[in-house]
Nucleic acid binder design. Structure first.
Lengths: 197, 197
DNA sequence: GCGTGCATCTTGTCAATGACAAGATAGGAT
DNA sequence: ATCCTATCTTGTCATTGACAAGATGCACGC
C-alpha cells in the first residue's frame, strides 16, 4: 500500500527519502530540515527520527542510495573511458542531490556498513573500467609490470576520476563561465577527450 | 589596536573572519554558528550581525577573501600549467575553508560586487596561464585561429581546471583510496602530468 | 475470534540558533 | 565641550534537531 493516509503512513521511509532528494535539489543539503520533510510527507515532526535516527542518518541513507545508483550507472556504461566518464558526469547532473551528499562525508556516517559496501561497489566499477587495456593511454608496451607500472596505473585512474569529478562539481556549482550551452554532456565529452590526447 | 577588551573590540571583523575560517576547517561550513563565533571572539551573540548582516554575509566575505588569495597564489605560480595546477591544489589544501565556501555559492551572495571582482581576477589568471603557448598541448601549428581553435582552447582550460579542481575536491572529501601518502602535492603532480601525455 | 507484542507514528518539551529590534557605549569630528 | 555615528549589547521570537513518553494499529500466535 503506497497510500499516505491514516495513522500508519505505509511507505514513509521511501516518501521521506524522495522528499529529501527533492528538497536538496532545490536548496542544497545544508538547508534541509527534517521538520520540513515531515510536513511535506504529511506526518508529525518526529516521524523521520524513527526511520533515520537523526539528520546524519537520513544523509547516510541518501549516500548509500547514491553510491548504489552510481555503481549501476557506471556498470551500464561499459568499460570505455570516455563513456564511463560521461556516465559519471551524467549521474552527477541527473542525481545532483545524491552526488552532493555522497562527497560531503561530514554530513553522514561514512563508516556505515551499507555506505561502505555501496561505495566499494562503485569504486570497483570505476577502477575496473579505467584499468581496461583498451582505455590505457600507454598500453604498457614494455611488458614489465613492476611497482612503477602499478603506481602509474593508479595515477591514471586518479587522473580520470579527477577530471570527470572536477568537471561535474564545477558545473553543478555554476562556477563555469557562461556560454557553454546548457548540455553538460556536450562540454564534458570535449573536456574528457583531452585526457587522451 | 588589536586588543580584544573593552566595549569596542577594535578588530572584531577580522577576528570573526579568522575564527570562522578556523571553525569551518574544523567542522565544515554547514556547522558554522554565528553565536559560536561570537563566543570565540568574546563578544555578544548579535555582534557579528553588525559586520556581516547575516550568515550569508559572513560567507560572502570569506568567499571574496578566498578568490583574492587564490588569484595571488596563481599569479605567484607563474604560467606553466603544471605549476599553476600545483598552486591550485596547494591553495585548496592550505585554505580548505575558503575553498569549500568559494565553490558552494548557495552559502553566500555570489553576485556580490567584491566577490565578482575577486572571482574574475582569479579566473583571468587561470585562463591567462593555461592559454600560454608553452603550455598548450598542441601549439596550433597550423597557424589558423578560427572558431574551432577558440573552442578548443577553451576546452583545454576547462580540462585543466577540471582535473585540478576534481583532485583537490576528492582529496579534501577524503574520497581517495588510502595509501596515497599524506602529501597531496606529490600525488597531484603525477595526476596533472597525465593531461600532457 | 481475540489478545498481545512490536513497529510505527504522535504529542510534548528543551536547548540552540538566526534574525531582528531597541538601547548602551565610546571614539572622533566639529 | 558636544554631538554624531559606528560599534556592540540586551532582549525577544520563530524555527530547528533531539529526546522522552505515549497513542495506534498491524501481524501473529493461540
Amino acid at each position: 500500500m503506497s497510500d499516505t493516509r491514516g495513522y500508519h503512513h505505509g511507505d514513509l521511509r521511501r516518501a521521506l527519502l524522495s522528499a529529501a532528494v527533492q528538497a536538496i535539489e532545490e536548496s542544497g543539503p545544508a538547508a534541509l530540515s527534517l521538520r520540513d520533510l515531515a510536513r511535506r510527507a504529511g506526518v508529525s515532526h518526529a516521524a523521520p527520527a524513527h526511520h533515520f535516527g537523526d539528520r546524519a542518518g537520513l544523509f547516510t541513507a541518501i549516500a548509500a542510495q547514491g553510491f548504489d545508483t552510481l555503481a549501476e550507472a557506471l556498470t551500464d556504461a561499459g568499460d570505455e573511458m570516455l563513456e564511463l566518464g560521461m556516465a559519471y558526469v551524467d549521474f552527477a547532473v541527473r542525481h545532483r542531490a545524491h552526488f552532493e551528499v555522497m562527497f560531503h562525508p561530514e554530513l553522514y556516517r561514512a563508516d556505515d556498513a551499507e555506505v561502505r559496501a555501496a561505495r566499494e561497489r562503485s569504486g570497483a566499477v570505476l577502477r575496473a573500467g579505467l584499468a581496461h587495456p583498451s582505455t590505457r593511454t600507454r598500453p604498457a608496451a614494455d611488458g614489465r609490470a613492476g611497482d612503477d607500472d602499478l603506481a602509474e596505473q593508479q595515477a591514471e585512474v586518479l587522473a580520470a576520476w579527477s577530471i570527470v569529478h572536477g568537471f561535474a562539481t564545477l558545473w553543478l556549482a555554476g562556477a563555469l563561465p557562461a556560454g557553454l550551452g546548457d548540455d553538460p554532456a556536450v562540454v564534458a565529452r570535449s573536456v574528457i577527450r583531452h585526457l587522451y590526447t
